[in-house]
Design a protein around this nucleic acid. Structure first.
Length: 501
RNA sequence: GGUCCUGUGGCCGAGUGGCUAGGCAGAGCUCUGCAAAAGCUUCUACAGCGGUUCGAAUCCGCUCGGGACCUCCA
């Protein structure tokens, strides 16, 4: 049973075979830290966090590189060179690097909330200006870029003409035909200095008002949109690496340009497997800057957005994301989020309970062989589903088939002897492995010993009241705790537990 | 206009031609001092019209609807 991934380049599922046995190099496009991350950003970083976790689980030594784009790129070609980061800085009266630091910190905070593992290397664009300049020089030397008025452009036509002969035409990833493209590219002003409309900037001359600027062989300026990823990926992962991830919206032009740049410099296509996650939509429309429909992550966590009827915790969002396949669009909605919130709580409680249970009452031979086989079958499918292009929704579906079995065992609605102790231990181990280690889910609220003690005391008093048939006291404790958001649950056998809403 | 994706029950969402996805919500039952929780059972589907096939949500065609990219975007 081997891992298969959907490769955007071939448009098909392929068996994953790393270039260097035992090792995996993975690059994922990181955020532009000119603003706060929104719900849409949560998707790729959660998706590729699970990919990272699973590859490690499979025993690979993974180098996961995710950049921070902290050098401004222009808003739109043709407009006056306008640096996203520097213009925002003027607005907020902050130094550019102060702004960058602020949003980088916020991004890291959000990632930690989601329980995303930090990447192995998190390089910044501004820390790799030299590497980018060197790469641009190489492209010029090879004849695929030209300098005009202090800016450098990639010659897409020439690249396409030459590399088409090697079956590496420009547009290979996004399925675009360059010649069709030329007809459909919009007419933008101030493109005179480019030889062709489809050429893209590698280096841009900085106008006087531009704050972020660096010395280069072509004068003071700043790097183009795409070169940072090529330069940093090459530096840390080599001329060819295994996985490049990112959102589908980056496929063109960003990833297409990366391929062109790196192929010229490294004389080989840079990436073996291109993985793209689909978008999070809101009312059927992509969440994005251009639509002005983003909900910031801090707003999600706090419930402070007109479209939110309540706050949603990081684990609710992580679970929500993992309940759909990463290549499908996922539509935001309060009802859907609420469903995920409840579902995750139910799953987590069952998970905690199964970990606490022992094998007392179980033997080597199950009394219900069908059930025993069913449980083992459901567990065995975890790996199968994960190997099938990371089908996390199917894993979660299987887990929910196990939940009633676990709850039944706990409440003695199902005989302990139903399945073998080996099966039960397998259940405990696989649930732990997939819920915590691979899907990266974790307990919602942090433990608070004092609160725990107080609640335990109230539970004891209520138990006593119930034993004395003092239902006035018993109901008072239950109702008033419920009003405070603590749900008490009477379990079979007289035990009580609580859930904080 | 070009390229591509998509349309599943009240909501979200898996679905690799034949076998109940799953979650949330709804209904009934069991349990319970009552309730909740839990367990058991259960109702709502495959946009429409044709075609291929013994058999289609799944393949093909058309129609209608939604969306993405072609511009910064996860």
């Amino acid at each position: 049973m081997s891992l298969k991934v959907y490769n955007s380049l071939s448009r098909s599922k392929e068996v994953f075979t790393p270039i260097t046995p035992g090792h995996v190099g993975m690059y994922v496009c990181g955020p532009t830290v000119s603003g706060e991350s929104h719900l849409g950003h949560a998707r790729p970083y959660i998706t590729f966090d699970v990919v990272y976790r699973y590859l490690q689980h499979l025993g690979y030594k993974v180098r996961y590189v995710r950049n921070i784009t902290d050098a401004g790129h222009f808003e739109e070609e043709g407009r006056e060179a306008e640096d996203k980061i520097s213009s925002k800085a003027v607005l907020e009266k902050l130094e550019p690097m102060e702004l960058v630091q602020k949003y980088t910190n916020l991004f890291h905070w959000a990632m930690a909330q989601f329980n995303n593992l930090p990447p192995s290397i998190e390089p910044t664009a501004t820390g790799h200006i030299i590497e980018q300049i060197v790469m641009i020089q190489q492209i010029i030397a090879d004849g695929y870029a030209y300098e005009i008025n202090g800016s450098v452009y990639f010659d897409v036509n020439k690249y396409n003409h030459h590399f088409s002969k090697q079956d590496l035409p420009y547009g290979i990833l996004s399925g675009r035909n360059l010649y069709e493209q030329l007809d459909t590219t919009r007419d933008l002003s101030n493109q005179d200095e480019k030889r062709n409309k489809s050429d893209f900037a590698l280096w841009k001359k900085a106008p006087p008002e531009h704050i972020m600027r660096w010395q280069s062989p072509w004068g003071e300026g700043f790097p183009g949109w795409h070169i940072e990823c090529s330069a940093m990926a090459t530096k840390y992962l080599g001329k060819q690496f295994d996985i490049h991830g990112g959102g589908m919206d980056l496929q063109f032009p960003h990833h297409e340009c990366e391929i062109a740049q790196s192929t010229v410099c490294n004389h080989t296509p840079p990436v073996k497997y291109w993985l793209h996650n689909n978008m999070i939509t809101i009312n059927g429309r992509k969440m994005g800057k251009s639509y002005g429909n983003q909900i910031m992550l801090s707003q999600m966590f706090a419930g402070t957005h007109p479209l939110l009827t309540q706050a949603y915790s990081p684990m609710t969002i992580r679970f929500f994301v993992l309940q759909s396949h990463y290549r499908s669009t996922l539509d935001f909605g309060n009802d859907a989020l609420k469903a995920s919130e409840k579902a995750f709580k139910r799953l987590w409680e069952a998970y905690e309970n199964v970990q606490k249970m022992g094998t007392v009452g179980m033997s080597d031979t199950p009394s219900d062989a069908d059930l025993d086989a069913k449980v083992n079958g459901l567990l065995a499918e975890f790996a199968e589903f994960m190997n099938d292009d990371f089908s996390t929704p199917k894993i979660i579906a299987n887990m929910f088939e196990l939940v009633p079995i676990i709850n039944g065992l706990k409440n003695n609605q199902l005989a302990k002897s139903s399945f073998s102790s080996a099966t039960f231990v397998n259940l405990q181990q696989q649930m732990h492995l997939y819920i915590e280690v691979i899907l990266g889910l974790r307990q919602e609220q942090t433990q608070n010993d004092q609160l725990e003690g107080v609640l335990q005391l109230l539970i004891d008093i209520r138990k006593q009241a119930k034993a004395n048939k003092d239902f006035v006291t018993s109901d008072k404790i239950r109702n008033e705790l419920a009003a405070l958001g603590v749900m008490l649950k009477d379990e079979k056998g007289g035990e009580m537990s609580y859930t904080i809403v």
